[in-house]
């Protein structure tokens, strides 16, 4: 009998056979075990490449600009974090980590692991990449950043005129791709592939 152990509550249960679209959940703590229909490696790879292309304009183009007494100023994501490096280095590091470093590294990792499956290879680095992915996956916070943008836009409207700029379009698309990548990523599938099961 094939069993599965929940890594949230440690209960052993029988591994169910799923029909398409179903999700297996632990009977004791109701956390999801696995689901069917996760994206195929080639689609994951395509999404990861899309994200990598989008990352450059999304992080460097101005996300919004303000108009204050005849002066227009734009602000992009990198600038926003780096400008505080003297006054508050810890804050800068955390912002760069959650909004820039993790999304970029995570996309690179997923691109690497899905490309390995796609090409049918098991490079020695793959194990490390999968480990890195599992420790980074909770730290990608682009969704929080988008809400922060809206909050700051509303805050600024009392002092100046706010306009959304070209970078925001890239950022929103990047966010959608990033969320799809994270929710479709199944670490078990990649580890199974590495073990050649």
């Amino acid at each position: 009998m094939d069993t599965i152990i929940c890594n949230h509550c440690d209960m052993v249960s029988t591994r169910p056979i799923l029909r398409s679209g179903q999700v297996a959940k632990c009977p004791r703590c109701h956390r999801a075990f696995f689901k069917t229909n996760t994206l195929k490696a080639n689609k994951m790879f395509a999404l990861a490449i899309t994200a990598l292309i989008l990352i450059i304009p999304a992080f460097t183009f101005p996300l919004m600009s303000i108009h204050l007494l005849g002066i227009t100023e734009g602000a992009n994501l990198l600038q926003g974090a780096l400008m505080m490096i003297e006054g508050a280095p810890v804050v800068t590091f955390v912002i760069l980590f959650c909004a820039v470093l993790v999304p970029t590294l995570l996309t690179l990792c997923i691109a690497y692991s899905s490309a390995s499956i796609m090409l049918g290879k098991r490079p020695p680095l793959l194990g490390y990449v999968l480990k890195l992915t599992s420790s980074l996956i909770h730290w990608s916070m682009l969704d929080v950043y988008l809400i922060s943008l809206l909050v700051s836009a509303v805050k600024i409207t009392s002092d100046a005129d706010v306009y959304f700029s070209s970078g925001l379009c890239f950022f929103v698309v990047l966010l959608i791709v990033n969320i799809t990548l994270i929710s479709e990523y199944s670490s078990t599938k990649y580890w199974k592939y590495l073990r050649n099961e």
Partner: peptide
Amino acid sequence: SILDLFVISIMVAVFDKGSLV
């Protein structure tokens, strides 16, 4: 809760260089 930090970074970037604010 990291939202507030992002908001600060956006505010700092937007109100930059401007001698007014």
